[in-house]
Design a binder for these strands. Structure first.
Lengths: 195, 195
DNA sequence: AACGTAGTACTACGGATGAAGTGGTGTCAA
DNA sequence: TTGACACCACTTCATCCGTAGTACTACGTT
């Protein structure tokens, strides 16, 4: 079992791309080797099984999302009204959607986790933590809305992103921006701008 | 290419189960044969390719959901206030979640459709039609809320179901009912009961 | 009532594919 | 010199798919 962390990370990033492009079906050691442009057999040397590869992909995904500190600081700046929330939500949707392969890979992992308890536990913890994190930030920042607001926003926007990334024709391109705005307006009552 | 419609439907139902249980990775002709308890090679005789099998599974899924006439009539009865909408949404969530394998299979198909234009077109049309159908019904029934309300409800509840079916620990069992209620209350402003 | 035919069900084999793992060699750095 | 890793080649293994061939059943004909 090889240890080189940089190479391991590169392999995991490659696995994310493969998952997004070819699905769980296409995720083989060989495919990861090819995607990472390393010699055949390398992935075999770094992961003892497909199972281990999958759970490590889960870890890696969240590792890559960690550097949220910048975005976090941004959330604390500016006014504390609904229009600000709308702006922030647009940013979030934008950010998540640009990492398309990551999002799709995570969906594949979700479905895989149906059959892999270890993966399920990992994902449950990370996602629960993510939601709690968002709630804490939201209320601490003094933004309008409570914990439930954040959860409902989380639900609606996630499915919107899923819909866009898998079946883009359901909500046409040009409607998406307004749709995000609508979602926030419906979920978060009150005046648009604070007095 | 065999024609027996009953057997074809049985094979497609088996394919749904396989998709939900083993994922796209496990969906092979042989696995479908085994699930449908028919002799090896039968699925091969009924579908010329994996591609064709997948798109026909898509058709079959919606075929099975068609008999919504009863639920539809129910929507038209009763009061026309928010609590009624909440009730209806509880019913919808309940109904969808009891066909767990169907929902999971559809998610697999969504991800597959990323790579299969034909499948993507099929799913896009059906889902778009489904949304439009719900909107029309909602407003015709005189229920509170407009088209946007229905769309936002669709988004939030779908992700809630996805979360429950893939990572049940994120939103614990006992919170789900209240969460559905919360979702409706946040998205649909106004009094609970009509005057 | 016997026969022939068409459409299916079932069995079994053939061929091909591609994946995983391992052993061996070369290279670099401590 | 030694240990860890990169790279390569080869063997083994697991399935999977397609189809040829056979048996069965229903139905229409005469």
């Amino acid at each position: 079992m090889r240890q080189n962390p940089a190479r391991r990370a590169a392999l995991l990033d490659a696995a994310i791309e493969v998952l997004a492009r070819d699905g769980a079906r296409g995720l083989t050691f060989r495919a990861v080797d090819a995607e990472a442009q390393v010699p055949v057999g390398t992935a075999s040397n770094y992961f003892s099984s497909r199972d281990e590869l999958l759970t490590q992909v889960g870890h890696r995904y969240y590792e890559r999302l960690e550097p949220d500190a910048a975005a976090l600081a941004e959330a604390l700046s500016g006014p504390r009204d609904r229009d600000r929330v709308t702006e922030l939500m647009h940013d979030v949707v934008e950010r998540v959607m640009t990492f398309r392969s990551g999002y799709l890979a995570l969906l594949e992992l979700r479905l895989e986790s149906t059959r892999r308890p270890e993966l399920r536990e990992l994902l449950s913890k990370r996602i629960r933590a993510d939601i709690d994190f968002n709630i804490r930030n939201h209320v601490q920042a003094g933004l309008p809305g409570d914990a439930t607001t954040v959860v409902v926003l989380y639900l609606a926007l996630n499915w919107l992103i899923l819909e866009r990334l898998t079946l883009p024709d359901v909500f046409p391109d040009e409607q998406v921006h307004d749709l995000v705005t609508d979602v926030v307006e419906r979920i978060l009552p009150g005046p648009r701008r604070s007095a």
